[in-house]
Structure formats: C-alpha cells, structure tokens
Design a protein around this nucleic acid. Structure first.
Lengths: 215, 215
DNA sequence: ACAGATCGTTACAATTCTATGACATGAACA
DNA sequence: TGTTCATGTCATAGAATTGTAACGATCTGT
C-alpha cells in the first residue's frame, strides 16, 4: 500500500492514527516535531503526509513549504490560527479538523491516495480483484457484473475493513441518508456480495449490530 | 490513559471527581480557579477539561475561550446562569448538571475521549486483548467468539474498572433502563465473562451488591 | 410503451442468543 | 455449627436476529 508520514506531537493521537492506517495495510512513519518531519521527507519516498499545524521546533506551515509536492492532509485544531491556516488549505490536498472521526480520516486518506495515484487503484483478496476507477470486479480473472449499489457497498467495506460497521453506519456511508424504520436492505445487499464475490468467510456478521470485512 | 484537568472550586467535589477518574486509570490535575486553569492549559498537553462555570478570578466562560480546542465538559449548576451557559453548550463537547452521578460523569468522559480519539481503542489485561472498533476479543492471541451482551457487559466493566457496580447499575448500563426481570441475569453473564475470558480472579463479587473488575 | 435491470420490501426458514429456573456451592451471622 | 440468604453453575425453551428467495415498483434505454 502507501507509505504515510504522520507528523503529530501528541503521542496518543499519533499512535492511534498509526494503528488505524496500519490495520488497513499502510506503512507508517511517526514523527513528533517539524525537524524530524523534514528529515524523513528528504530521505524517504513518502506517499502522503498527515501534518499537524501546531508543532514543536518547526511548525506545520514551514514544513509544508518544503514538502516538494508530496500530498499533504492538514490536521487542524478546532479554533486554531484559522487565518494563517486558511491560506494553507488551498495548497493542501485536504484538511481535517480535530477532533475528527477515524472513519473520516481513513476515507480522506484513501481519497487523496487514489487521486494522487499513490495507491494501487485496486484491491486484491483471495481470487477477488476490485478495480476502483473502472468500477469493475474480477473473480479468478473473470469479470463479474456488478450493480452500482453492490460496488458502493463493497468499496465502503473494503475501505473500512476490520471494523465492525453497524447497519446505520452502512446506510449513511452507502445510501447517504438517515433511514427511517427498519428494513432488511443492508442484509440483502451484503448477501449479494457474499455469494457473488465468494466472501462468505470474509464478511462476518456482527450479531445485533452489522457486518465486518475481515482481511 | 488520558490527562484530565479538573477545574472546580469546591474542594470536596474536585477531589471526588479526581479520585474516581484516577481509579479508572486517568491522570488528573486539580485546579480551583480560572487563573490556575489557564496556566495548566498553556503548559501541558491536556486531553480533556472538566470545567465548572462559577469560578473565582476568571470564570469558566472566559476560560473556555482560551482552551484552543481542547475537548471540554461543562459542570453546570442546576439553576446557574442558564442563559449565558446555553450559548457555551453549543461549543462544548458535553455538559453535565450538578449534582450528577459519578457513573454518569465517567460515561461521558469515556464517550468524549473515545470520540476525540484521546483514548486507545483497545484494552489489555493479562493475556486478554479487547478491540473496540472491531468488537473482537483475543485471549493469548486467539480470537474468542463473543455475543453482543457479553461484549457490551465487558465494555462497561472495563470503562468502570475498579468501581463496584450494583446489579441494577449494570442492568441500566448494559440492558437499558426499561429492562424488567430477574437480576440473576447479571450473575449469569458475569459468569460467562469469567470463564470465557479467564477473568475469575479479576472480576470480584461484592457481596449483596454486585461486581467489580480489578486491574 | 416495452423490455430488462436494479433495488427496497416482505415472508418464511434457519440460526443464534439469552432469560430463566433448578440445583449446588458459598458467605454471613447468631 | 447450623440456618438463611446470596451467588455459582448448567441446561434449555423461546425470543430475537439473520439468511434466503421471491415479488413488484421504479428506472433506463430503445
């Protein structure tokens, strides 16, 4: 997957981000101040930088000037120096306001990596090959027809693999609206995914909650 | 765990909160007026602030303006300056009305910390590893199947570790207020936890009351 | 307007969970 | 030590949840 540099001086946050990115398959390097950050940027092929603005030694603003075009997502405090940051946001690939939800961060990381082509545009698991740009799915090399909803759901499951996702969460992420009343819509689409893409053993049901894609 | 700043001028209340938060593993700093509060905020990496509104020297309202986005829970008197406070509530992560129940405060603290990702998403004890996002439990590295009630109860016990929890309290926290039935239900589920997760020595029974998870 | 595809809903079967009761064991107290 | 009440332990019936298939409404392209 991608090599991601996490520049964040609060150790618990840094480690939490690291754990989550690693769990979806990325390689992570944690640094805790701007000096270390510039060090890593110069010597390694970093694919993406998560950059806190408030940093010891050299602040995020100055680090950003020297990233030489490496894609960057800013992590900004709720009411930080918004005026200064505002300008930066234009140059950055994305920014996210703390405190943020981890699922949101993961989604943005994937989006930037895909946009900047630093991540393979596809996903492999067992004999399954999912190609995101073309929205096509192959099983053992054979193209499997895939409806829009099926693909959207599959994509969300892949981007949030190893996380228990409630039905409500899935409705939010895939259907995009708050669902009223109870229906078996999610269940039925999950069922489609399982049988169509041979994911019976990979998509676990989390009883009374929802589903989880295990890789 | 997390570093929590308690800003409360009534010494007994301040100390009570401190004792309880420490017993579940948090690091606490007690201050008794707004001036001290700003001092601590500026020099240390505070993860969460519990902020009384009525304070000597500088009041909670003014302190909040300078927290630089550190998550904050307000402690408001029932008939405080509700008009002024009302506005604050929008910016705060949560608020709780005095007099409050300690368990309620603990629950809100955990909720905010998890929401703002200042607390780890997993819990370790002896060979037991509990992963909250995936809702999976490992014992000596092996995945142990876990029912919803088992996981919910385990989570509550972990979040309120070192605190004696009555059966009624557990029924409230895990089953929900509207549960009608035998309180032996709790006993049976505790038994499951003990045998399944090798917690025989960790979950103590508090005679005539309930149970306590000791770490 | 028609044919074909997609998708939300429903119904029923299969599965999983859990509250409960019965009995055994243990703690408190006189 | 004996009595009483509280808790540990286990099995099971019934409730709750999910799997599965089929249906009809809606949409799309012709």
């Amino acid at each position: 997957m991608a090599k991601i540099l996490i520049v964040e001086d609060e150790i618990p946050i840094n480690e939490l981000i690291k754990r989550n990115l690693q769990s979806v398959g990325h390689e992570c390097i944690s640094v805790f101040d701007g000096e270390e950050a510039l060090n890593e940027i110069s010597k390694k092929n970093i694919d993406l930088i998560l950059l806190d603005i408030m940093l010891p030694k050299i602040d995020g603003y100055d680090v950003f000037q020297q990233t030489c075009g490496v894609p960057t997502i800013f992590l900004t405090a709720r009411n930080g120096l918004t005026d200064k940051v505002q300008g930066l946001k234009l140059g950055a690939d994305d920014y996210i306001v703390k405190p943020f939800e981890m699922l949101e961060l993961l989604a943005r990381v994937e989006a930037v990596l895909r946009r900047t082509k630093k991540v393979s545009d596809s996903f492999e698991l067992d004999g399954l090959h999912v190609d995101f740009p073309s929205r096509q799915v192959y099983l053992d090399g054979d193209l499997i027809e895939c409806t829009p909803k099926e693909f959207d759901l599959l994509e969300v499951m892949i981007n949030n693999r190893n996380i228990a996702l409630s039905r409500d969460k899935l409705l939010d992420l895939v259907w995009g609206y708050d669902f009223i009343g109870d229906s078996r819509t999610v269940d039925n689409h999950i069922q489609k995914l399982r049988s169509k893409f041979r994911l019976e053993d990979r998509i676990k049901t989390v009883y009374k909650l929802g589903y989880r894609l295990e890789v």
